[in-house]
Computed example of a mutant assay.
Amino acid sequence: MAPIQFYELDGCPFCAKVRTTLDDLGVEYESHSVPRSHGERTEVKEISGQTEVPMIVDPDHEVEGMHESDDIVEYLNETYA
């Protein structure tokens, strides 16, 4: 299985919620810290068309650029719990 790609910003409580869920479920992931400036988040924008974080990419389940922490947590629990 390929690890989930997790894009996050230090100090972001929504990102922390997703990180905690990934850790609690024991899901393998690679964390990518993004710049504070939305204008500098080019990698996130290229993937999803947006600059918001948290964002995940799950190559094993063809999830490309999922945003919204509640949606991500729900997806992770449904897919990996």
Rank of each mutant, 00 (worst) to 15 (best):
E40H: 01
T51S: 04
E40S: 12
D60P: 10
T20M: 13
G49F: 15
L22E: 12
P54M: 08
A16F: 01
T42C: 11
T42I: 10
S31Y: 09
R19L: 02
E28F: 10
H32P: 07
D23Y: 06
V44W: 00
Y75R: 14
G65D: 03
M66K: 12
P3W: 05
F6W: 03
Y7Q: 09
G49L: 12
I47W: 07
G39N: 11
P54Q: 04
H38D: 14
V34N: 04
D24M: 14
C15W: 00
E28R: 14
G26I: 06
G65Y: 03
E62N: 10
E46L: 00
D24L: 08
Y80N: 01
D71Q: 07
I72N: 13
P59I: 03
D71W: 08
R36G: 13
E43Q: 06
P35Y: 06
L9D: 06
E64G: 03
S31N: 04
H38E: 13
L9E: 03
A2C: 11
H32Q: 10
P35D: 14
P59K: 11
M1F: 02
P13E: 03
S37I: 01
S69Y: 01
S37W: 02
V34R: 00
T42K: 14
G65F: 02
E30V: 13
A2N: 11
I4E: 14
T42D: 13
E52A: 01
V27Q: 00
G39D: 14
T21R: 11
R36Q: 09
G26F: 11
V53G: 00
C12M: 04
E68V: 01
V18W: 11
S69N: 01
A2K: 15
T51W: 05
V44T: 10
T51F: 07
S33R: 11
P59F: 00
R36T: 15
P54T: 02
E64W: 07
E30P: 02
E46M: 15
G65V: 05
V57H: 03
E68F: 10
L9M: 04
E68S: 12
D24I: 08
H32M: 04
G39Q: 05
Y75T: 05
A2Q: 15
M1S: 15
L9G: 08
Y80H: 06
D60H: 07
E68M: 03
D10R: 08
C12E: 07
E64Y: 09
P59W: 08
S37E: 15
G26A: 06
G65W: 03
H32I: 07
E43C: 10
S48K: 09
E64P: 00
Y7T: 10
V57K: 01
V18L: 01
S33H: 15
V73A: 04
D70V: 02
E62Q: 05
P3K: 13
G39H: 15
A2G: 09
L9K: 06
E28C: 12
M1R: 11
G65I: 00
E28W: 14
Y7C: 13
P54K: 13
V34L: 04
E40L: 09
V57S: 00
P54I: 04
F6K: 03
L22I: 11
D70F: 02
L22A: 12
Q5P: 07
Y80P: 13
T42M: 14
